[in-house]
Computed example of a mutant assay.
Amino acid sequence: MTAYPLDVARPAFLAALDGLSALLDHVDDTDLHARSRCHGWLAADVLAHLHLGLVEMLAGFPARTDRPADSDLATYWTAFPGSELPDWAHERFARAVASAYARPTGQIAHVAMTLRGLRRLVADLDGPYRLEFQGHVLDVGDFVGTWVVEVVVHHLDMTVALPDAPAPPASGLAVVRETVTRLAGPDVVAGWGDDTALALAATGREPGMTPVLG
């Protein structure tokens, strides 16, 4: 299993965080109360879900291990296939978290704090190592790469009703393309010239291919 290079994953992740920060600077309460690409979720619900995940990511970095990697940038997602039924318990929990704020933008300050912590931690990583996360062992470059995908896809989820909102960075979308290529095969991906369209189809947000990302 060849590790995804940290030197590729790191700048893409930092750019994805910058893109998410730009989006959060752009939105107001009405924007976050708009529909998302996730069925039944408002944009604020998606943001709450993403924030819960990023906090979990932050806690994952110290879980270093000498065990060999058993998952990588692509195979990590095979535990969460795009065709699975929704996790109603988590969806309801994310919605409850978002609803706990007095107004939709109330959670932005908390998200921004987490983004600052992640930005500093990832920028300061001194080299490759392996870590345990959600029952998997991943090289840190693969771990960071999976979260590039998560941030980019949910960024797209939150902007379906906001055509003028900042888009995810090209480097982040390129990591999504690499992940989909590994999962679906280069022949499937070859016909997709637009990385955003590929990301939406590969996650089941738009038609065009069998979903391979959750």
Rank of each mutant, 00 (worst) to 15 (best):
V140G: 09
P81C: 02
T114Y: 06
L121N: 01
E84N: 15
T105I: 15
A89S: 13
G127E: 01
L73A: 05
V152H: 08
A123T: 08
V97E: 12
A59W: 08
V212T: 06
G82T: 09
V176D: 05
D194Q: 06
E178A: 15
G106A: 09
T210Q: 15
T210L: 15
T78H: 06
W88K: 04
F143Q: 00
E91F: 11
L118P: 01
T210C: 12
S71W: 04
G172D: 09
T78P: 06
V111W: 06
W192V: 01
A161L: 01
G191F: 11
G191I: 10
V97Q: 07
L173G: 06
H49W: 04
P169T: 08
V122N: 00
E84F: 15
E206P: 06
V180T: 06
L20M: 05
V152Q: 04
D25P: 02
A165C: 10
G214A: 01
H155D: 00
P11Q: 03
A9D: 00
R37P: 00
R67G: 04
E132M: 02
M209N: 08
L58R: 07
V149W: 14
D28I: 05
T114D: 10
L32K: 12
D25Q: 10
H33W: 10
Y76Q: 00
R205M: 05
W41E: 08
L73Q: 02
T203W: 13
V27R: 07
L23W: 03
A174W: 13
T30L: 14
A89N: 10
T78E: 13
V137T: 15
A123K: 09
A12Y: 04
V189K: 10
L14R: 03
T181S: 13
E150M: 12
A199Q: 07
G204A: 14
V189Y: 11
A123W: 04
A197W: 07
L156H: 11
P169I: 05
Y76C: 00
P211L: 11
E206C: 11
V189F: 12
P207A: 12
L32G: 09
Y101G: 09
G145I: 07
M57Y: 03
A96F: 13
F13N: 01
H90Y: 09
R35S: 10
L156C: 08
W192Y: 12
W41T: 05
D194E: 04
D157I: 02
P163C: 08
A170Y: 06
G19N: 03
T105W: 13
Y129G: 03
H39F: 10
L115W: 05
H51A: 02
H110F: 10
V97Y: 03
D124H: 11
S171R: 11
A123H: 09
A201Y: 13
Q107H: 10
G19D: 08
F13E: 00
V176Q: 08
D164A: 15
G106S: 11
V188M: 08
G60V: 04
L183Q: 08
A109P: 03
V149F: 14
H39T: 15
P163E: 07
G135L: 05
R10H: 02
F143G: 00
V152C: 05
D195N: 14
T30D: 15
V122H: 00
D70P: 13
V122K: 00
D142M: 12
D187H: 12
A22D: 15
A197Q: 10
L131R: 02
H136Y: 03
A43C: 13
G117M: 02
L173M: 14
G117D: 04
A167E: 11
R95Y: 03
P128V: 04
H33G: 14
A202V: 07
Y129K: 03
D157A: 05
R10V: 01
W147C: 00
